[in-house]
Simulated scan of single mutants.
Amino acid sequence: MASRQLPSTMKKLVVTKISQKFRDVVKITQESLPNPGAGEVLVKNRFVGINASDINYTAGRYDTTVKPPFDCGFEAVGEVAAIGPGASLRIGQPVTYSQFGAFSEYKNISERNLLKLPRVSADYLPLQVSGATAAIALDKYGELKAGETVLVTAAAGGTGQFAVQWAKRAGCHVIRTCSTDDKVQFLKKIGCDRPVNYKKENLKTVLKTEYKNGVDVVYESIGGEMFETCLNGLKTKGRLLVIGYITDYESDQGFKPTRTLATIPIRLLTKSASIRGFFLNHFVRDWVPYVSKMADMIDKKELQSFIDMGENSPKGPFIGIDKIVDAVEYLYSQKSIGKIVVELNKPATSKL
């Protein structure tokens, strides 16, 4: 095994029981540093991303066969720290990956599941889950056409920021919802045509008065009453993309059924409209080409990546594995702007 000087142990976050209450069910463990196997490399995780579905995973909603204890976290940016037999990457190579168990200071990853990066930067981290979800969903299911109207909910969040930019690049008019005036200014910065602070404006009224013909595509991640408003706001042949329902994630069931569900078929029928669910895990083959393309766009200043490392959070900045819990709770506070990122390790100081 080829490696630079490494510690003998590492810390990682482990889920101890099934629940959506993240703080109550995770703990930090210290374990021996694993040796990479054949075709694997050991990645030193520099930055990890926080996702709304981190609590869905601890609640056992993604894979009911997984029993505690198990690792959590979906994505990381780091550098190769050690190389197993048959692996070809060099020590120090910047890489990124999307795989369960990323909330760890080091992690063994099959070389074929890594994407090489030009440098270690937190700017690339939002692309793994948030960026890829936005781009692939809008391309594959949104079927965007220039001149169409697109509504993006939670637009100032990790994935919303990319949905906005992707729709604008397609030549669409974009309406975006958010919860604060600071987020309104952020949305204007990335090209928003019509930001809506739903704490001050009624989205139903905005759609009825300013978009009487309805919207062509909705990129929806909130659920609940917001989902109802978006469904009603679709125009004929409109497409509603469900990429999440964060309003209900913190409930015991993870979903709160409503009486209006029974009316959905007729509402879709009368508009020839559709609701399309999107889950990134079903688009594994698209992940590498899309993330690679978006990383290149960031380097060329064609796409902006905004991160929030908790600088404005009472419990921030988010540095160290012990800050992951605070970062998850910060996401649900609705105060973050951009993708929430935690820095786990400082850069290596030794020469390659």
Rank of each mutant, 00 (worst) to 15 (best):
A38W: 04
G49I: 03
D24E: 15
E40S: 04
R46Y: 13
V43N: 02
K12V: 01
K12P: 00
I28E: 01
K17F: 03
L33P: 02
V48P: 10
K17I: 00
K44T: 12
I18P: 01
I28Q: 04
V41E: 08
P36R: 08
V48E: 05
V25W: 10
N35V: 13
T9R: 15
V15A: 06
E40I: 05
N35H: 13
K12I: 02
N45A: 11
Q20P: 10
V43A: 06
G39D: 09
R46H: 14
V14Q: 10
D24P: 02
K44V: 12
R46G: 07
T9N: 14
F47W: 14
E40W: 02
V48A: 08
P34G: 06
I28L: 09
R46I: 13
Q20R: 05
K44N: 15
F22D: 07
E31G: 01
F22I: 09
K12D: 06
G39H: 09
E31I: 04
G39A: 10
R46K: 08
I18R: 07
L13A: 07
K21Y: 13
F47A: 10
I28R: 02
S19K: 05
Q20G: 00
K27P: 01
K17S: 13
D24K: 12
V41C: 11
S19E: 05
V25L: 11
F22P: 04
P36G: 11
K12A: 05
N35A: 14
K21Q: 15
K17V: 00
K21A: 14
A38K: 14
P36A: 12
N35W: 03
V41L: 08
G39T: 08
V48R: 06
G39Q: 10
T16D: 08
V25Y: 10
R23G: 09
A38S: 13
